[in-house]
Amino acid sequence: MSAPQFMRVRADMPPGHVRTPAYLRGKTGWVERRLGPFPNPESLAYGLEGQALPLLRVRFTMAEVWGADTSHPDDTIDAEIYAHWLEPAEAPHAP
């Protein structure tokens, strides 16, 4: 097993059709698996050609998403995030 690859979700708040949930924006998780490429839904939604993008399943801890005082901080959330929403990151600091 290689070291986990941490990624931070961009904290952008654009208008229009996007598939990156707001509650994960600005949060850091690690890559669970890589998928794709898939055409960008942000273009497909408007009848345009979608650029083929890598799609990553990213795993976040409840502590990272909701704060350390959440009831079960080690429970996790996985979500599929398109590559243009992700930036390499350091491991989140322990609280």
Partner: peptide
């Protein structure tokens, strides 16, 4: 039980 880890999967895209 607390010993069981919960993994939530948010079905956000193509899978």
């Amino acid at each position: 039980p607390d010993a069981t880890q919960v993994r939530v999967h948010d079905s956000t895209a193509d899978m």
